[in-house]
């Protein structure tokens, strides 16, 4: 039995009449990297700020390390490191001062690891924060977070201002945390990053978690892209309810198949003297787009 680190059940948050979070239920287990994806304004940052006790929940429960995120905020924060999506730093302090301050606020010290990270991220720590670009401010927050010894790391779109080389370093550091058995909650827009690092994924849309699971689980629920050339006509497949987006040029046909019906479709193809067959599992991008379009379609139907 894996131990949950973060446990959120039916979390709700209202701002006046506006319901930012309607039903958030998810768990992050010990030693896993959990990817939190969704479009702008879906409620990712609101969920994270509620987890940090910055916002007060309107309903449901949320715990970290089994403790209530509002009541026991300080106890939780001793074992946690956080990097926000937009990092703003006191303009008249230097980057080095901010890093050390953040470490000290968790009773930790500037260590050789801090120096290694400063070197790896190539940050000039003697500059005042108001001279930093967005990427450099993010580096300050990342260095402070990675050099903090914590059990849970929360990153809210942490690489939006970083160049590809720095993003690579970020990924290495996250994988190192994972190898060390730490838990990570990573909210991101960069799906390749999530695909590469995350064990499990939660998709949020319009204040609700609409899917959680491993990437493999989700692929099961999704469609496989098939490209086929056959001697006999494959046109009849277009009428199959499990086949979507059927397109034919000459003897070559491309279409998407619901993953659970893949066997049946292959069986239907067998008598048609298949010459080539190519099947591609869905990427996270595909999954993402599909969930979104699907949801929008249902939403439209309801109206």
């Amino acid at each position: 039995m894996v131990q949950p680190v973060v446990e959120i059940k039916q979390l709700q948050k209202h701002f006046g009449k506006f319901q930012a979070l309607k039903d958030i239920t998810l768990t992050v287990n010990t030693g896993e990297v959990f990817g939190f994806i969704g479009p702008n304004g879906a409620g990712k940052s609101t969920t994270i700020r509620t987890l940090l006790g910055i916002l007060k929940k309107s309903g449901g429960t949320a715990t970290i390390f089994g403790q209530d995120v509002w009541r026991d905020a300080v106890a939780i924060h001793k074992r946690l490191a956080y990097v926000p999506g937009d990092v703003y730093l006191w303009p008249n302090l230097s980057g080095g001062e901010v890093i050390d301050l953040f470490l000290k606020l968790n009773d930790q010290k500037h260590s050789s690891r801090t120096d290694e990270l400063i070197k790896a991220f190539e940050l000039d720590v003697s500059k005042k924060c108001h001279t930093y670009s967005k990427g450099n401010r993010q580096k300050v927050a990342l260095i402070a977070a990675f050099s903090t010894a914590a059990d849970l790391y929360i990153f809210d779109e942490p690489t939006s201002g970083l160049d590809p080389l720095m993003e690579e370093i970020f990924q290495q550091q996250v994988l190192a945390l994972k190898a060390a058995g730490k838990s990570v909650l990573l909210s991101s827009h960069i799906l390749s990053e999530v695909e590469h690092m995350c064990d499990r994924i939660g998709i949020i849309r319009d204040g609700r978690i609409i899917e959680t699971g491993t990437l493999d689980d989700m692929r099961q629920l999704s469609r496989t892209q098939v490209t086929v050339t056959a001697v006999k006509s494959v046109k009849q497949l277009a009428d199959n309810p499990a086949v979507h987006g059927f397109k034919q040029t000459g003897d070559k046909a491309t279409f998407a198949v619901d993953s659970e019906a893949l066997g049946a479709v292959i069986a239907a193809l067998a008598p048609l003297e298949v010459k080539t067959l190519q099947s591609t599992p869905p990427t996270l991008e595909d999954l993402f787009m599909r969930y979104y379009n699907q949801q929008e379609a249902t939403a439209d139907e309801q109206h």
């Binding site: 940090l52 006790g53 910055i54 905020a73 300080v74 106890a75 924060h77 001793k78 946690l80 490191a81 956080y82 990097v83 926000p84 937009d86 990092v87 703003y88 730093l89 006191w90 953040f102 606020l105 968790n106 009773d107 927050a141 402070a144 929360i154």
Partner: peptide, 18 residues
């Protein structure tokens, strides 16, 4: 003011009570 400017956001994620 510093809250609105976003300066305190990371501070709240530290072991510092309100």
């Amino acid at each position: 003011r510093d809250e609105r400017n976003g300066y305190f956001e990371q501070l709240h994620a530290k072991a510092v009570s309100r």
